[in-house]
Amino acid sequence: MNTLIKARELGKIYIRGAEEIKAVDLIDLDIEQGEFIAFVGPSGSGKTTLLHLLGCLDNPSSGELHIDGTAVFSNGKTLKEGALTRLRSALFGYVFQKFYLIPSLSVMENILLPGVFNRRAGQKENAYKISKRLGLENRLNHLPREISGGEMQRVAIARALLNEPKILLADEPTGNLDSIRSREIAQIITDLNSEKGITVILVTHNPELAAKASRVIELIDGHLQ
């Protein structure tokens, strides 16, 4: 197996007034390509912070972080913003609890949005293919306000998949959905991992979704258990 993400003594400290909060503390973690990882734990345990660090959305305070052979954080230095942008665009697809669809763009345009910043051949065809796979083919011309919450999350997943990422990061992807829609989204994510080999790293409070992961990692007070 190929190690896609390698973290050593990874830490993130927040300063709030005089208080120093260790959100992530001395974490060692290796994630292989094709794994399905679920971070679980109580609120405030640092799982979302860890997800953000692994997804290059936030800068670590200490330790080492290598992603797909690139030293993202090493010897106290983070990659420059431009290089981080390219890395995010090339490797990651992000799915958030709140979907973050652009309200003025149609479903199809939302799916195509990452393609605006990273042009590749065949993106439109890919968008059609993904939307069909996720059951959105009849919703492509609708605006986000015209579709259900489950459909919105499917659009967010389709958007994350447009550039064929190696890693899909999902933060509470079923957090805003009812149980039926949650199961639907959980199945889609599981299928993406098993059929397409996409590495999935997600944060969830949903035991049903966590149970589908190949590895469940529990965090408490910023430490791996």
């Binding site: 997804g55 942008t85 995010r88 665009s89 990651f92 992000y94 605006v116 910043f117 958007r159």
Partner: peptide
């Protein structure tokens, strides 16, 4: 938030 999300998708400062 929208702009932040666009940046997470690979939008550069120039975009």
């Amino acid at each position: 938030q929208e702009i932040g999300i666009m940046k997470s998708m690979g939008a550069s400062a120039s975009h």
